[in-house]
Simulated assay, not measured.
Amino acid sequence: MTWHLTGDVERFLAATGAFLRARPVENTLPLTIAEHVRLHGPRAYGPRDAVFGWHDGEEAAAVWTPPRPPVLSAMSTQAAAALAEALSGDLSGVSGPVAVVEAFAAAWERRTGATAKVHSRMRLFRLGTLVPPTPPASGSARVGGAGDRQLLIGWTAAFFREVGEDDPEIEAFVDDRLSYGGMMLWEDGGTPVSMAALTRPEAGMVRVQAVYTPREHRARGYAGAVTTAISRAALKAGATEVALFTDLDNPTSNALYQRLGYEPLEDRTVVEFPS
């Protein structure tokens, strides 16, 4: 039983689409990354072509968009270790369910002599019953438009800095979401005070991203308000599942999303392989 690796996203989806879409929340990252590459080309995430993989002995998938680390689906520890043997090139790290990442990292360490270091720990949530915050924050939501582009780029860059991610494609991130109404702003007194983003729908699933409030506007309920607004908009547009990730080291956001009706599903980890 072996891994098959390809740069052809259509071939990857033909091999994995059925099982990935059967559990769209758990597979939110492989699905949304593959769709983004399908729409924008193999270098949608950086200067090197994306690589996709699947295992012919079980339902297992991997997506790698250098320079980002490969993202792994749920799989056996044996399949994860075999993938570490199959991949070649400089890996900055690996991301996925905790046990899967640990098995991959151990095999990569044996193969290369690298030492894995935990970069971040995340929790995947799915929306149950949406519970708007009480008392409600002052202000109202609106969909971001072209006139908000520079503000959204600046806030998105600030968001990625705060969560410790180096994303060189900030403008592409914002422009893509503006193209389908996937950026939302919360305004108070006509002034934008918070934002949230949304992925394109995949198998009825969307993922809330980049919830950000500048420091001068925090502790006023704006993050909860904009998250509620974008979640409600997604459901109204026909989404059957709404997901999001939180940083496990941030108790504030973990508590907030659970108050809004988001239910913890599973934990993920990202490890780095320092050069």
Rank of each mutant, 00 (worst) to 15 (best):
V63F: 13
Y45V: 06
G53W: 06
R38I: 07
P42F: 08
D56G: 09
F52V: 11
E58C: 12
D56Q: 15
G53N: 11
P47L: 02
A50D: 01
A50C: 11
R38L: 10
A44T: 12
P70E: 00
G57H: 15
R38P: 04
R38V: 00
H40R: 13
H40F: 08
H40T: 10
F52I: 05
P47R: 03
V37T: 06
G53P: 10
P70H: 10
F52Q: 10
R68T: 00
P47D: 05
A62M: 12
P66I: 05
H40V: 09
F52A: 12
R68D: 10
R43M: 13
E58T: 13
V51N: 04
P69L: 02
A44L: 05
P47N: 09
E59R: 01
A44F: 00
H55D: 11
F52T: 06
P69K: 12
A44D: 09
R68K: 06
A61I: 05
P42G: 08
W64P: 03
G57I: 14
A44E: 06
A62D: 08
A60S: 14
V63P: 03
H40Q: 11
L39F: 04
V51L: 15
H55P: 14
P47K: 03
G57T: 13
W64C: 06
D56P: 07
P67H: 10
W64D: 08
P67L: 00
P70D: 09
A60Q: 13
G53F: 09
G53I: 14
A60N: 12
W54S: 15
P66W: 00
V63M: 00
R43N: 07
R38N: 02
R48F: 05
E58Q: 12
L39G: 04
H55W: 15
P67R: 01
A60P: 13
P66L: 03
R68E: 11
L39E: 01
P42I: 07
H55L: 13
P67C: 04
G46Q: 08
P70R: 10
P42C: 08
P70S: 03
E58F: 15
V51T: 13
F52M: 12
A61N: 01
W64R: 13
Y45S: 02
D49V: 07
V37H: 05
